[in-house]
């Protein structure tokens, strides 16, 4: 509770200290109680319903084949994200270009790859060998090297290709949105100061665009993490495929789906933490003072 001393008035009132009584919020308490009861019921159900079969869950959670599959999921996510964003940068630059050919090509790419469902696209890439049984690199009408498509595009390669191409279309739009969000005055100020073009882009525009890019990019990344489960259609041993193999044998569907679910949740949590601190880094100067991190808040509470 805080204590205020009112300004001394000219009237005869003696100066006295006034006590502030905080407003009461009874409905807030009622709501909190209701939520806690519902939460307790849910936890009770998780603990007591034999259908969850926690023994099987813990038996498989760190099982070797599951952890290996998790590694494949991570590989697909990381490689897909890197390739996707590397593809997104030129797509965004092309769409913002004054050259009509570049901007139209970028627009068309984004249109097509946003339109085709990921699963359809993955099946296309997996069947590339049916369309072209040999792929060739070389100079048009000149010498070239040719490869058997099946050798070049493995199922994993097809999955990665599909994810990256799909991701690039969305990443391109996210990056473009970020670049557009930077005020025109910033471009003008940088130009008026004679700052070289690449420096204007990387030192002035990109750090400001990151504020708008990051939340959307994190969304895309989480989405990609989950989309890797779709590549099970290509019989790649990622997390979701592996738990299906296991429950296909043992018939314990629910605990094994929980194994996959909990791993996805843990990975998303890790990404969210990464997102929080990256966003905070790029918030420098955007807000007058940064709010404390949850960790700092906790420390402040413990110190009291």
């Amino acid at each position: 509770m805080s204590v205020l001393s009112p300004p001394r008035s000219a009237t005869a009132d003696p100066p006295e200290e006034l006590v502030v009584v905080p407003a009461r919020h009874p409905w807030r308490w009622a709501g909190t109680a209701l939520v806690l009861v519902l939460l307790a019921q849910f936890v009770h159900g998780l603990a007591t319903n034999p259908g969850w079969d926690w023994n099987t869950f813990f038996g498989y959670f760190l099982e070797k084949s599951v952890v290996e599959a998790l590694g494949t999921t991570l590989q697909l996510t990381v490689a897909g994200a890197i390739l996707g964003f590397l593809g997104g940068i030129p797509l965004a630059a092309m769409r913002l270009s004054k050259n009509p050919v570049l901007s139209t090509v970028s627009w068309a790419y984004i249109w097509v790859f946003r339109s085709v469902p990921l699963i359809v696209q993955l099946l296309f890439w997996a069947n590339l060998g049916y369309l072209y049984d040999r792929l060739q690199v070389g100079v048009p009408f000149g010498p070239g090297w040719s490869f058997a498509t099946a050798d070049l595009v493995s199922p994993f390669g097809a999955a990665l290709l599909g994810l990256a191409l799909h991701e690039a279309a969305f990443a391109g739009e996210i990056i473009r949105a970020g670049l557009l969000s930077v005020d025109q005055g910033q471009h003008e100020a940088a130009a008026a100061l004679g700052i070289p073009r690449h420096r204007q882009f990387f030192k002035i525009v990109v750090p400001q665009a990151m504020r708008a890019i990051l939340p959307n990019a994190a969304n895309l990344l989480v989405n990609l993490l989950k989309s890797t489960s779709i590549v099970y259609v290509l019989a790649i041993g990622e997390l979701f495929y592996q738990v299906q193999v296991i429950y296909g044998r043992s018939g314990r569907v629910v605990p094994l789906l929980m194994v996959a679910t909990v791993w996805y949740v843990i990975l998303t949590a890790a990404l969210s933490i990464l997102q929080y601190y990256t966003e905070r880094y790029f918030a420098r100067g955007a807000v007058r003072t940064l709010p404390p991190t949850p960790f700092q808040k906790l420390k402040a509470v413990l110190r009291k």
Binding site: A189, L193, G194, R284
Partner: peptide, 25 residues
């Protein structure tokens, strides 16, 4: 553009809305 930027570095410009870079001190 490179040559124009070089010319501009010799001419100071102060904007109505300041246009300071918000992420730099």
């Amino acid at each position: 553009e490179r040559q124009i930027l070089k010319q501009r570095a010799g001419i100071g410009f102060v904007f109505q809305n300041f246009n300071l870079f918000p992420h730099l001190t």
